[in-house]
Design a protein around this nucleic acid. Structure first.
Lengths: 312, 312
DNA sequence: ATCGCGATTTCATTATTTGAAATGCTGCCT
DNA sequence: AGGCAGCATTTCAAATAATGAAATCGCGAT
C-alpha cells in the first residue's frame, strides 16, 4: 500500500480560509465549479476545471455529471461545459420574487424586520415600467430602477432603447458598489445617517475606475450635495466612458423608496447634461406621483405596539 | 454510464429507485433544495424544506448553509430562505453565452458538430434588437426572438412595450414546448424532415391548453401549412387567452436560423390579425436583410483561460 | 498504424455526511 | 404569569458516500 505517501492531517488545503464545519464540501465544490464555468465564456472541459480548481479529475467528473443531470450545465459536443437551462429558469423565479417585492425602505429596522409581511404588492418595477419606458424613449438611453433589498441597493428594472445598451456587467438583480453609481449614491443620500454609517461599516469603497469615490469623507460630502440638489451624477465612477444620472422616487409617505436613472456616454454630460437631468427628474416625479396614487390598501397600518414591548 | 447494480452486501435501503453512482448525492440534494425554493414564492424555512423533501432537518440545515454562504439563497429575518443574488449573477453569464451565440442552424449535424467553433459572433439577439424594438413599438405588443440551441428552440430576446407584458412563464433562455407556440412551430416548419423526425422522437407533445396540438399527424400538417404560408399562428396553444404570430428569419445563405414573433390577447386575432401578421413578416424580412448585410468579420477570439467579470 | 492527450471508470480508503436526539429560543395558549 | 409547542441550532458517533491514484478507453494527430 504505497498509496498515500503523505499523510496529511488536514485536507489538501486548497482553501486558505478555514473550512467551516457547517458546510457540505462536495456541494460547495459543485457550486464553485458552476461559478468557474460562469466566468469562462467558452466553457471548460473536465480537465480544465480540475486544473483550475486544483481538484482531482475524478471529482470534477462526478461534479459535472451532477450539474449536468440537474440541468445547471450543458455539455457541448466538444466536451466543453457551459451553463445550462436551469440557470435562466431559476432567474425567472428570482425575478418573480422582485415582482413580489416589499416596501424596500432603507434603514436597518425596516429590512431587519419587514421580512415577509412585505410581499404581495403590485411591485415597484411593474408599476413604474411605463415611466422608465418613456424616459428611455425620450432620452434614447437605457433607464434603470433600483431599490433597497436587505440593506443593499438592488437594480430591479432596466429598459433599453432601440440603439443603446446598458452598462456591461450590470443586470437585474445586481447589487453592490452603491458608492460608485448614481442610483446607489442617491439612495444613500436619502438614507438616515445611522443607516449610512451601517452601510459604510459593512462595505469597502472599492475603486472601480479612476473616478470612483473611495474616500469615506468625500463620499459623505457627495451624499450631502446630492441630498441638497435632488439628484446624483456618476461621472465614470462605475464604468469608464459611462455616466449616469439618478433621482429619488418617494412613496406616499414621502420616504425615498427607489431611484430612477439613465446611463449614457460620458461625453454627453457637458452637452446634454442639463436636459438629461431634467428628464430623469421628471420621470422620478412621475414615479412618485404614481406611488402616491394607488393607496394599495396595505393593512400594514395596523397599530404596531398595541400590546407591550419586547419581552425580556 | 451507470450499469452495474448487483447483489452487493450493501446495507439496507440502498436504492429507493435507482441511485446513479455517477452523481454526488449531497450536491444533488443541494440543487434539489434550490429548485424547491425557486418554486415557492414566499420562501421556505429549514423545517419546511426538510418536510417537503423528506430529508433530515440537520441535512437541510447544512445544505441551506452551504447555499447561503455561496449566495445562492438568502435568509429572510423570518427564517425563510429565498433565492439569492448569485442567481441573477449566473443568469447574466448565461445571457452572455447567448450573446456569443452561434449559427444556430437546425439539423442534427449542426448542433452535434458546431460546438465551440460556433461562438464569437456579434450575436443574433444583439443585432436584431432594433428590429424587435420597432416591431414591439408599432404593434404595442411584446416581441420575441428565438433560435435553435442544442436541438431545442430557445427564446433569446424579448422586447416589451410600455404597457403590455410578456406571456407569464416565458423568459429569455426558455426552451421547450416548441410544438405549442408560434416560434417553435415556424422553426420546425423550416427544418429538414429528418430533424423534425428526430425532434418528435425526443419530445412528447404535451398538452398545455385546450388548443395545443398533441397529435403528431396534425402537427405535421400544421408545419406544412406554415412552411407554405410563410408564418405561424399560435391560437391559445401555449397559454389561454394569448395568441402569437411568428415568421422565419433567414441568414445570408437563405437558411432559417431564427424566428421573430409577437404575442397578444387572442381576441385581437380576428380584428387585427392581418395587420399584425404584416408587421411580423415585415420585421422578419428586415431581420433577414440585416443578416444578409454585414458579413461580420468575427474577431474577438477570446481565450477561455481568462476570467473577468465585475462581481465576484 | 501508432502515439498521446484527455475523458471515463475502477476501487479501496477514509474523510464527510448523516440522523437521532439534546438544547435553547420565541411566541402562544391557558 | 407559567407552561407548552414549534422551530432553529448544535452535538456526536456510525457508516455512507466522496476521494484520488491509477487503469482503461477513444479519438485525433502524426
Amino acid at each position: 500500500m504505497a498509496k498515500r505517501s503523505h499523510a496529511h492531517p488536514q485536507t489538501q488545503a486548497s482553501s486558505p480560509s478555514e473550512s467551516k464545519h457547517d458546510i457540505l464540501r462536495s456541494a460547495q465544490r459543485v457550486l464553485a465549479i458552476l461559478e468557474l464555468i460562469a466566468r469562462t465564456p467558452g466553457g471548460l472541459t473536465v480537465r480544465a476545471v480540475s486544473k483550475l480548481l486544483q481538484l482531482n479529475i475524478s471529482t470534477c467528473y462526478h461534479s459535472l455529471n451532477t450539474l449536468l443531470t440537474a440541468g445547471y450545465v450543458e455539455r457541448l459536443p466538444s466536451g466543453h461545459y457551459v451553463l445550462g437551462p436551469q440557470i435562466p429558469y431559476l432567474n425567472d423565479a428570482y425575478l418573480r420574487t422582485l415582482t413580489h417585492d416589499w416596501p424596500a425602505t432603507d434603514p436597518q429596522e425596516s429590512w431587519r424586520a419587514v421580512a415577509r409581511a412585505s410581499a404581495h404588492q403590485p411591485s415597484l418595477s411593474q408599476r413604474l415600467r411605463p415611466i422608465l419606458h418613456s424616459l428611455s424613449e425620450r432620452s434614447q438611453e437605457p433607464a434603470y430602477l433600483a431599490g433597497w433589498r436587505y440593506g443593499e441597493v438592488e437594480l430591479q428594472a432596466i429598459v433599453e432603447p432601440a440603439h443603446a445598451e446598458r452598462i456591461p456587467g450590470i443586470y437585474i438583480g445586481y447589487r453592490g458598489h452603491a458608492h460608485a453609481h448614481a442610483l446607489g449614491k442617491v439612495l444613500l443620500a436619502y438614507s438616515s445617517p445611522a443607516f449610512v454609517e451601517d452601510y459604510l461599516a459593512r462595505h469597502t469603497l472599492i475603486r472601480l475606475t479612476q473616478q470612483t469615490i473611495v474616500e469615506r469623507t468625500l463620499l459623505c460630502e457627495e451624499l450631502h450635495t446630492i441630498a441638497h440638489q435632488g439628484y446624483s451624477i456618476d461621472r465614470e465612477e462605475l464604468h469608464a466612458d459611462t455616466a449616469c444620472l439618478a433621482a429619488p422616487v418617494r412613496d406616499a409617505q414621502g420616504r425615498v423608496m427607489a431611484a430612477i436613472a439613465i446611463s449614457f456616454r460620458s461625453d454627453l454630460l457637458s452637452r446634454r447634461g442639463e436636459w438629461l437631468t431634467a428628464q430623469v427628474l421628471r420621470a422620478a416625479r412621475q414615479a412618485s406621483a404614481e406611488l402616491r396614487l394607488s393607496r394599495h390598501a396595505s393593512d400594514a397600518s395596523r397599530h404596531p405596539e398595541r400590546w407591550g414591548g419586547p419581552v425580556s
